[in-house]
Design a protein around this nucleic acid. Structure first.
Lengths: 384, 384
DNA sequence: AAAATCTTTGCTAACGTTTTCATAGAGAAA
DNA sequence: TTTCTCTATGAAAACGTTAGCAAAGATTTT
C-alpha cells in the first residue's frame, strides 16, 4: 500500500538518507560509485522522490502559475502553454492554469490570491495587469514573468512580440502593393484584460501616417468587432457598409480574418480580386486558407519565458542561501525527473527575428518581430 | 520573507493549530463562531494553506496526470483540458500534462513512471494504452480514468464518445441524401497511440453494410492520409485519382476536412456541387466554413471526467481510513481554495445526448453520441 | 440526578524529504 | 611526519500541515 520511501532505499543501499537524497538532487556531491549503487537500488525498488515532501522541506512548491485573460482554447494561449510545458515539465514543474476572463474572476483571484505560498513563479500571458496588481503579485515573493505584456514595469522578465513593428510590416506590404484604402479590423472586448489589440492598432496607424508623410494618399478605416456579439458578422456588415470600399483589409488576428474570408464568398466578394487580406498569427488553417499573415511562434515565446523563469528561480534560490554576492548562475537543483533541462540552450528564434533584448542574448526582456508570410490573399491593387 | 503559517494564525486567533486546519479543510467539525474568528484572522494575516505541507501529511499530491498521445495544441486535446481544468482547478488540483507522441517518450514514461507518488489520479485522453500499460498505471495506486479510450478494461471510469454510432449517423445522413459512392478519409499515424480513427472507420463501414443489407447499391473507398507527410495533399491526390469519383466524402476529423475543402477550389471542385462533405468534431471554424459535421463537446467530456475523478479520489480516501464498508460518497475533504466544487452537478449534456452509462446518470462508464449539424457542405445527390 | 451521547477543541506524533553541521579519510603542502 | 585542505558521508533538525486520540462541556436520554 505505502510507497517506497527514501528510507527504504537508504537501508537497502547501505547508505544514509542524505546520500540518497543527494544522489538525486545534488549528484555532484556524491561519489560516482555510491551514486551508481544508490540509483541501481532505487530503480530496483521502483522509487521516486515525493514532490510533496521535497516541496515542503525546500520551501518550493514545484508549481508555476499561468494567468490567462482568455480561454486556454485560444490558439495563441494553448500554443504558449505547449511551449511552456515542454520546458517546465521536464524540469519538474507543473503549471497551474488560471483563466481570468471576467471582472468577478479577476476580483476573486486578486483578493484570494491562491498563488501565494503555492507557486514558485507567476507567468502572465497576454495579461493586461495594472500596476497595483503587479505589485500585489510581486508581494507573493516569486518571480513574475510576462509574455506579450504591454506594461513591463515591475516584471522580472518578459518576452513579447513587437506588435507595433510587426503590424507596420503588414501594412507596409499592402501599401507597397499599391493599396491606398485600407481597413483595420479588431476584436473589441467588454473587458480590457487581453493585450495585443492596442499595439497592433498603433502599428497600423503608424504605417498609414508614415505613408502619408511620404506623400502617398492613403486613407484608412478602423472597425471594431465586439467579441461578445458575433464579431464576424459585425465585421462583414461594417465592411460592406463602407463607402468607398477599401481594397485592403488588415485583421488583428487570423481568427477573425479567416471566418470573414470564408463568408465573403456569399456576398460575391473574392479574395484577392476584391480585397487583399492580411491576418496576424499564422495560426492553424492560415496556410490552407491561403491567408497572407504575420507569422509568429508562440511556442517559442513559451519556451523562452520558461527558460527565463527557471533561471530567475535558480537565481533567487541561490542568493537567498549564502552570503555570496555572486551574480552568476546558481547551482542547478531541480528534480531531474525525466528528460533534460539545459536552460541556456541556443536561442533558436524559429520564424521570428529577435530585434532587441537585454544586454546579452538571454536578456530578461526580449522583443521579437513577426515575419510576413506571403500567400494568395494579397495581390497588387487592380488598375482601374 | 517567510510566509504566514498556520501557527501564526492559531496564535493570533487564540486557538490550536488543529482548529485552524479544520476551519479550512473540515469546516463541519468546527463551531460556526470559532470558524468565523479563525477565518477573519487568517484573512487579516493574508494566510493561505501550503499545498505542499498538506500534501505531504495527507498523502495526496493535489496533482492529476493527463496523458496525451498528441500535442496539447490539438483542438480536441485543449478543449478537453479546458473542461478538466475548469472543474479540477477550483477543487485544488493541478494538472500535470504528459505528451507522449513517440515510442521513445512512451518508453521513457512507462519506465520512469514519473506519476508514481506524484499524482492522485491519472487521466488518459484518447490514449490507446495496452493492457500491460494499464496494469502498470494501476500499480501506482490511484484512480485511472479514460476519455475516449478504446480499451476500457482496467480503468476505474471512462467517458467516451461513441465513435462508431456517431459516424454511422454521418453516413446515414449522406445515404439518405441519395449518395451511393462514398469515400472515407482518415489520418494515419506512424505511431498507433491515438484513439478514435479505428472506431469511426468501423462506424463508416457499418453504415455502408447496413445500407447494402437494405438493398441499396452503395460503394465505398477508404483513404489513408499519413500524418507525418502532408495528409492534406495525400487526401487530395488520392481523391482525384478515384474512378469513378465518389459523390460524398466522409472525414475522420474537421481538421482534415477543412483544409481539403479549402484546397478543392484549386482543382475546380465545388462543395456541395461536386462532393458533399461531412466532417467530425464541429471544431473551431467548421461553422464559418459551412461544414456539415458531427458535433461533439470535448469540454463536457473533460468536465465529466473531472467529476468522476474527484468522486473516485474521495471514495478511495474514505475507504482507506476506517473499517467502514460503506460504499456511498466519502466526505469531501479537498482544499476549498476559490470557487465551488459541486461534484454531482446536473449532467448537462450540451450538444451530445447520453446514450448509455452505468447504473445511474453519474455512472463511472459513460458513452455519448455526437449530433449531426447540417450546414452547406452537404446536399442531395444530383440527378444525372 | 445520573448516565450516555454528541460536539468542539487541544495535544501530539507523524508525513518524507532537504540541509546544516560535524566527522572521517584522502591527498597535498609544509 | 605533521598540518592543511578537500571530498564524501552521516546524524539530526526542521518544513507546515493533518489526523488520531483524549478530554471537557453541552445536550440528551434514562
Amino acid at each position: 500500500m505505502s510507497q517506497t520511501t527514501i528510507q527504504d532505499v537508504a537501508r537497502a543501499a547501505g547508505v544514509s538518507v542524505s546520500t540518497v537524497s543527494r544522489s538525486f538532487t545534488r549528484p555532484d556531491l556524491v561519489s560516482a560509485t555510491t551514486r551508481a549503487k544508490v540509483l541501481a537500488v532505487a530503480k530496483k525498488l521502483d522509487f521516486r522522490l515525493s514532490r510533496s515532501a521535497a516541496a515542503l522541506k525546500s520551501g518550493r512548491s514545484f508549481r508555476i502559475a499561468l494567468l490567462l485573460p482568455s480561454p486556454i482554447t485560444n490558439w495563441f494561449n494553448v500554443t504558449v502553454l505547449s511551449g511552456l510545458n515542454s520546458a517546465l515539465q521536464p524540469a519538474g514543474y507543473d503549471i497551474s492554469i488560471f483563466t481570468i476572463a471576467t471582472w468577478e474572476q479577476r476580483r476573486s483571484f486578486f483578493t484570494s490570491m491562491p498563488v501565494r505560498r503555492n507557486a514558485d513563479a507567476v507567468i502572465l500571458c497576454s495579461f493586461n495587469a495594472v500596476p497595483d496588481e503587479i505589485t500585489e503579485l510581486r508581494g507573493v515573493g516569486v518571480p513574475v514573468v510576462g509574455i506579450n505584456t504591454s506594461l513591463k514595469a515591475g516584471l522580472d522578465a518578459d518576452v513579447s512580440l513587437d506588435d507595433i513593428r510587426s503590424e507596420e510590416l503588414a501594412v507596409e506590404h499592402l501599401i507597397g502593393l499599391g493599396h491606398r484604402r485600407l481597413a483595420y479590423f479588431y476584436t473589441s472586448h467588454d473587458t480590457p484584460f487581453d493585450y495585443s489589440a492596442d499595439d497592433r492598432h498603433i502599428g497600423f496607424d503608424n504605417a498609414i501616417l508614415a505613408a502619408r508623410d511620404k506623400g502617398l494618399d492613403v486613407s484608412s478605416s478602423t472597425i471594431a468587432c465586439p467579441y461578445e456579439e458575433d464579431p464576424v458578422n459585425a465585421a462583414l456588415a461594417k465592411l460592406l457598409a463602407l463607402s468607398p470600399q477599401p481594397t485592403a483589409l488588415v485583421f488583428q488576428t487570423d481568427d477573425l480574418a479567416m471566418p470573414v474570408m470564408l463568408h465573403l464568398a456569399r456576398y460575391n466578394k473574392r479574395v484577392p480580386q476584391n480585397y487583399s487580406v492580411v491576418g496576424f498569427d499564422d495560426s492553424t488553417y492560415a496556410a490552407d486558407a491561403g491567408l497572407t499573415t504575420m507569422h509568429q511562434d508562440p511556442a517559442d515565446l513559451g519556451r523562452r519565458a520558461a527558460r527565463l523563469t527557471l533561471a530567475l528561480m535558480e537565481e533567487r534560490e541561490g542568493s537567498g542561501t549564502g552570503p555570496e554576492p555572486t551574480h552568476g548562475r546558481g547551482r542547478a537543483s531541480s528534480l531531474p525527473e525525466h528528460g533534460h533541462t539545459s536552460l541556456q540552450g541556443r536561442g533558436h528564434a524559429t520564424g521570428a527575428q529577435e530585434t532587441s533584448g537585454g544586454t546579452d542574448g538571454s536578456g530578461a526582456f526580449q522583443s521579437l518581430v513577426a515575419r510576413l508570410v506571403l500567400r494568395e490573399s494579397t495581390a497588387p491593387v487592380r488598375a482601374d
